[in-house]
Design a protein around this nucleic acid. Structure first.
Length: 227
DNA sequence: GACCAGGCACATC
DNA sequence: GATGTGCATGGT
């Protein structure tokens, strides 16, 4: 039984694996989310929430400069002081709370060790992450995939727009419906999951608001809506 | 000056 | 379960 709403049962849609091939051929492998450490990736995942990556880079550079980009440093630093350092990433008071909440979670469940955390299964980790203040589905899955090397497909705004614009759904899908579609239709492979999401975000500006800019998009020749 | 960017929590109906 | 609102900087 297909419970997902808005799923278009068309047979002539380009398989998602082929969409990946088109992007991969056009752009080559994208070194997506190349943080210097798993913790840096986690910090980035939280700071980039509804925020342009450019602003996040400045915040991360700030943290590095002040030697605060580590688990012990975030554990120790007062929230107010942390907020000032990450100011450029927007929502800085909220995000300071979130960063400290993650470290508290790590301390409580995995003795403050990402290595220990990484040994746990997706089934254990995902619900736990979702219970942490400030970690929703996209942030949780970004942490699982890019920081902990767990094969879950990350969905973001651009991914939902792509699925809608190219008729995989007749309205923008929910997170779960979009994830379900990807995970059931492409090979479950860590490298593929990482690069495919990177490719999608890489062409995200073609799906930008208020209306899509299709000129030059490698997916231009696929059937697509114009709204 | 308005609008948007690699979301999420919380309130309300 | 769907919809609305606050959170906030920086680029176009």
């Amino acid at each position: 039984m297909n419970r997902s709403k808005g799923r278009v049962p068309k047979k002539d849609l380009t398989p998602l694996a082929d969409v990946y091939s088109i992007l991969r051929t056009h752009f080559g492998h994208r070194d997506w989310w190349p943080g210097d450490s798993p913790f840096e990736i986690i910090v980035g995942a939280i700071l980039t929430q509804n925020t342009a990556w450019k602003n996040v880079e400045k915040a991360i550079a700030n943290l590095k400069k002040e030697k605060k980009l580590s688990i012990p440093a975030i554990r120790r630093i007062p929230q107010e002081e942390l907020a000032i350092l990450i100011r450029s990433s927007g929502y800085f008071n909220q995000k300071a709370i979130k960063l400290k909440a993650f470290v508290t979670f790590l301390d409580d469940h995995y003795s403050g060790s990402l290595t220990k955390m990484a040994k746990a299964s997706i089934e254990e980790l995902r619900p736990k992450l979702l219970s942490v203040r400030g970690i929703g589905p996209e942030t949780a899955d970004s942490i699982l995939l890019y920081a902990l090397d767990k094969p879950v497909f990350v969905i973001d705004t651009y991914t939902k727009r792509l699925l809608y614009r190219h008729y995989y759904f007749d309205q923008e899908p929910t997170y779960e419906d979009a994830q379900q579609l990807f995970e059931s239709s492409i090979e479950k492979d860590l490298g593929l999951f990482k690069d495919f999401h990177g490719q999608i975000v890489g062409v995200g500006h073609f799906f930008c608001k208020p209306k899509p800019q299709c000129e030059g998009c490698p997916l231009e020749h696929l059937p697509h809506r114009s709204d």
